[in-house]
Amino acid sequence: MKNLFPPSLSRKKLVIFIASFLVFTVTLGFSFYEGTKKTVALTLNGQDKVVQTHAQTVEEVLKELGLTINSNDYLFPSVKTKVKDNFEIVWKQAKQVDIVKDNEKKTVWTTADTVAELLKEQKISLIEQDDISAKPEDPISDKMSIEINKALYLTFIDGSKKAQKVWSTSATVADFLTQQGITLKKLDRVEPSLQEKIEQNAVIKVIRVEKVTDVVEEPINFAVVTKKDTNLAKGKEKIVKEGKQGLKTKKFEVVLENGKEVSRKLVSEKTVREKEDKVVALGTRVLVAQVSRGSMPSGGKEFYVSSTAYTAGCNGCSGITATGINLRANPNVKVIAVDPRIIPLGTKVYVEGYGYAIAADKGSAIKGYKIDVFFPNLSDAYRWGNRKVKIKILN
């Protein structure tokens, strides 16, 4: 091909042409490249930002911004969504939070902004009496720890005081008493034990225990000492010396629970005043009426009575008269049983056909003007039978 330009001119123009062409091409390409950018509005952890990007997907946009996405993060739309012009992306980074509820730890990821939102998200409801380490309006931060102690409804009884209904977030009985400001003395007892874990509707009792000393005065009863006296008729008594009670003190250790006595232990005993025994003389002299076969003596009151006979061994007989005469030991004694309203006991009498005797006995069947005469043997009693006799009072 023939060169139309002079050698020196054509070479210079060619260089200028090529350079101009390259500038035009680059300018045109750059304009085209810039014209393909998309405007994307981002909300990153609550902060708004607008960027121009050639990224094709949400994931590419975030990578351009140097952001690493965690599966627990909130992202809308999803990472594979294609980006268009005037596109919106919302991303909220999840934070790790430890929730310790009633001493049980749980680690969660959350995009909640406040503690209140997190509790709602975790379906944790609180009442006024519950204890939480953070305020509901506190913002959530990464690696945050929130401690929750749920309140329990309890019945508390302190000693003899009236039962109280209380709320408590204590874990053990010991913690509860500390929370309530309860001080235990050395002997006090707690039910259940201090180490016991508290459960809903539990009943906690403080039994107030104390030991006291009780001194009691007690009388010492005197004894009755009897002495035989031959000068007194048998059955008669005579006080020789009056008795006097003694006095002693007893010291007891008493255990009280809630003010009520539950045990009593004798510690010591001391005699303050000695007793003095009562002395009684008992008559032993037997009054024996002598048998007389003579006629009725003169003088004295006379009247007729119906009479029967008995022996010391009769059915229901003890052998001892109402005045103390032992008929078995004195078989020859002359004794009649009388109604004391008619003939007083101890009265000396003369019974027609029987002789001199003493009214020394009585019986349930002897009523009114009736007597029962004593015989030492059954045959004599049968021979006497039932008869009407005259009796004379001698004294």
Rank of each mutant, 00 (worst) to 15 (best):
I182F: 14
L177V: 12
Q164A: 03
D175K: 08
A171C: 02
S160F: 13
F156Y: 13
S160P: 08
T183M: 13
A171Q: 15
T172Y: 04
Q179V: 12
I182S: 06
Q164N: 04
F156R: 10
D175H: 06
T169F: 11
Q180R: 11
F176G: 00
D175Q: 07
Q164S: 05
Q180Y: 15
T155C: 02
K162L: 08
K161V: 05
T169E: 13
T155L: 05
T183K: 15
A163M: 07
T172P: 02
T178I: 09
W167A: 10
L177Y: 07
T183N: 15
F156I: 10
Q179H: 11
Q179G: 05
Q180C: 13
T178P: 10
G181D: 09
L154S: 01
Q164P: 01
D158N: 10
W167Q: 06
A163D: 12
F156L: 13
K162C: 03
Q180M: 10
T172I: 05
K161E: 14
K162P: 03
S170D: 03
W167S: 04
Q180D: 07
I157S: 04
V173M: 06
F156Q: 09
K161P: 05
T155Y: 07
T172C: 09
T178A: 02
K165Q: 12
Q179N: 13
I157R: 09
V166D: 06
S168T: 05
T183V: 14
G181V: 08
Q164H: 08
K165W: 07
F156P: 01
L154R: 00
T178D: 05
T155H: 10
A174Y: 03
Q180F: 12
L154N: 00
S160I: 14
Q179E: 15
L177S: 10
K162Q: 09
S168G: 02
S160G: 04
T169S: 07
G159L: 09
G159W: 03
A163G: 06
D175S: 08
T172N: 06
W167H: 09
S168L: 02
K162I: 13
V166I: 15
I182W: 03
S170I: 00
S160E: 13
G181S: 10
T169W: 07
K162Y: 04
G159Y: 01
K162M: 04
G159T: 09
V166M: 07
K165V: 06
D175N: 08
T172S: 08
T172H: 11
T155D: 10
A171M: 11
S170N: 03
V173C: 05
V166S: 03
I157N: 08
S170T: 02
V166R: 12
V173N: 01
A163Y: 05
D175R: 05
V173L: 12
Q179K: 13
V173I: 13
W167D: 03
I157W: 09
L177N: 03
S160Y: 14
A174W: 08
Q164F: 04
L154K: 01
I157V: 12
Q179W: 15
Q180G: 05
S160H: 09
